[in-house]
Amino acid sequence: MIKIKTITLYLISKRLKLPFSTHLETVNDREAIIVEVTDHQGFQGYGEVVAFSSPWYTEETVSTCFHMLKDYFIPLLKKESITHPNEVTALLNKYKRNQMAKAGLETAIWDLFAKRQQMSLSSLLGGSKTKISSGVVVGTSSIKDAISQIESYLADGYQRVKLKISPDHDINLIEPIRKQFPNLSIMADANSAYSLKDIDRLKALDQYGLLMIEQPLAHDDIIDHATLQKEIQTPICLDESIVTYEDARKAIELGSCQVINVKIGRVGGLQTAKQIHDLALQKGIDVWVGGMLEFGISRAHNIALASLPGFTIPGDISASSRYWDEDITLPEVTVENGYIEVPKGPGIGFDINKFSLEKSTVFKESFSLI
């Protein structure tokens, strides 16, 4: 049995090195909630709530997640006992949705359990890779800045780039970048900016040999995406539409996509993320690990997940230094020749930079489960 003694929530905030822009929002300062779970023997596990400060990506925010953790999920753990982290999702699903709040707590318990077992989180999940390939997101609307960023990222060894697009900023962005980098592996992320009325415009993107186009249509749709995929050659990748295992199963059966972006926070934790990976592997659907402008703790969980065999496309897992002057983990995540080493140490394999964590903490609250 996992006997949790205390759970501490840290509300933190850090300024990004560069603003991150989509057609929906520009993020300058990144807030998050760090979840610290301590057991009776003093082992500590860490998770990270990756919701944004405003509900532009999903309905969740940092504030709503703090509320759900404090008033519902942590009290629920106080009432119920668990023996393995794969039991946490079913327990928390007593309450609907709120996937990112659930994931922050669930991943902390996975880390705690792995440390208690003296196993790496990667091994505990069934990961087989010793290193993972790394991709990067270009979050700017300026073509000049995008080309400059890509040149820098290629020099650092990143293996693919993702461009943020919308109907008024797609061909005019992709065309000059493809001309400048004819062999570059490019994917485009639309964040639901298009509708079926834009089929001809989306068809026009086929000529640029994109790796995929991510979430072109509505955030909660799988029906129209199936229609669109029949009309375009570029593989569709679903992101926001896949919130549960059932979403993934139905999307695959309908032919709504050829690729799924798996984000631990979006699907409610590692257990569901692994189930989606296993299903996709069985059905011949490509998967990759998506990013959320994370701090080092969530980045570490992403690395462990990406070590599973089905994750063959470079994920949005980049070096800590791309976002932060100082991350909250030690060592910081680094990329060498396009790859990130999978830690072999217990749990997530990274220590917590307590000084950086405390310096970034805006508010902190602890809860006793005794």
Rank of each mutant, 00 (worst) to 15 (best):
D198A: 09
I74E: 02
D278C: 00
Q229F: 03
G127C: 03
D351N: 08
W56Q: 04
D325F: 15
K96Q: 09
A146C: 07
T234L: 10
G135H: 03
F363P: 08
D239W: 06
K129W: 01
E87P: 10
L77F: 15
R178W: 00
Q215W: 07
G42Y: 00
E336W: 07
L293W: 10
A319L: 07
V62Q: 06
I285A: 10
Y158I: 10
I252G: 01
G310C: 06
R97W: 05
W110D: 06
K79Y: 05
I242E: 01
K344C: 09
S128P: 06
L281K: 14
P309A: 08
K359Y: 12
K115L: 10
F181I: 04
M68R: 11
S185E: 14
G268A: 06
Y339N: 14
H40P: 03
I150W: 09
R249D: 08
D278N: 15
K250A: 12
N28A: 06
A273I: 10
I7K: 00
G47M: 00
E365F: 11
I285K: 03
I232W: 04
S241H: 08
S81W: 08
I352F: 02
S241D: 03
S195Q: 04
G45C: 01
S54N: 08
K359E: 15
D189F: 03
A218Y: 14
F66D: 12
L270M: 15
N93S: 11
K14W: 12
V289Y: 11
K3F: 06
L228M: 09
S63D: 12
L18C: 12
G255W: 01
L305W: 05
A226N: 10
C65N: 04
D239Q: 10
I186C: 09
D224A: 15
K274P: 12
F73C: 00
V243H: 11
K5P: 02
P346N: 10
K78V: 00
I264N: 07
K179T: 11
K17W: 08
V88T: 09
L91T: 03
I340K: 07
T272V: 14
D220G: 05
S320G: 08
G338W: 10
I186D: 05
N191Q: 10
R116F: 10
Q44S: 14
K364V: 11
R116M: 13
S356K: 06
F43Q: 06
I223E: 15
S195A: 00
S366E: 15
E332Y: 11
K129A: 04
I252S: 03
W56R: 04
T58N: 02
D286V: 07
Q149T: 14
N172M: 10
V333H: 14
F363C: 07
D39G: 02
G265N: 14
E60F: 00
E341G: 02
V136K: 07
D247T: 03
R201A: 13
E214T: 05
I348F: 03
E231D: 11
I2P: 00
S368L: 12
E253Q: 13
G349T: 02
V289R: 06
E326S: 12
I242H: 12
S368E: 15
D111V: 09
D239V: 05
Y194T: 02
